[in-house]
Design a protein around this nucleic acid. Structure first.
Length: 174
DNA sequence: CCCTGATTCGC
DNA sequence: GCGAATCAGG
């Protein structure tokens, strides 16, 4: 891949937006993050304030003009409720895990019930990022969930519950 | 071990 | 000019 004017412009734009070198490399395609960093230097673009920021940090620095996120219903995907009951003279307390995924049906129409995603594009996915697709594959905004997926699962804990479920069983994921 | 940017240096 | 290898750091 060579640095066409077009690609250089995109590089400048994304770098200015605070994306990390690896993310820019992924979006451009065909180049490594090292290539991106090297190019940034050759272009004499301003470096980052402090070396070694996290991807999350870079994302946080995004302009406040970015679209508001959908409510993070996934954060209450599971919750614990303390249940008190008595057995004979013994008072027992136990933490019961409640699967609130069924709360989807209580969510006002129009709200998308999807966990806060990292909005990764295809080339940004790794072994441990959730590959649940979000959006229309034919549109620019198409991306993947990108949240951490445990144990090399292709999906995060939220989407794993939706995946591989016969449609009739989805209602009771878990 | 994951990630980050910075630097070096052979090509 | 390019970018892999390497370094230093969170």
């Amino acid at each position: 891949m060579n640095w066409t004017d077009e690609r250089v412009e995109k590089l400048k734009k994304l770098w200015a937006e605070g994306l990390s070198a690896s993310q820019i490399a992924a979006q451009l395609g065909g180049v490594s993050r090292n290539a991106v960093i090297g190019k940034v230097h050759r272009l004499c673009l301003p470096g980052r304030a402090k070396a070694g920021g996290t991807a999350a940090t870079a994302r946080t620095k995004r302009p406040a003009t970015s679209a508001p996120r959908a409510p993070n219903y996934a954060s209450r995907m599971t919750a614990t409720r303390t249940v008190t009951r008595t057995a004979g003279a013994t008072v027992m307390k136990e933490e019961v895990e409640i699967d609130t995924i069924e709360d989807r049906e209580a969510v006002p129409a129009g709200n998308v019930v999807v966990p806060m995603s990292r909005r990764l594009v295809l080339t940004e996915l790794t072994d441990r990022t959730c590959k649940w697709p979000i959006g229309d594959p034919m549109k620019d905004e198409f991306h993947f969930c990108g949240n951490d997926s445990p144990d090399s699962s292709p999906y995060c804990t939220f989407h794993a519950k939706l995946a591989y479920q016969p449609s009739g069983e989805r209602r009771r994921a878990r």
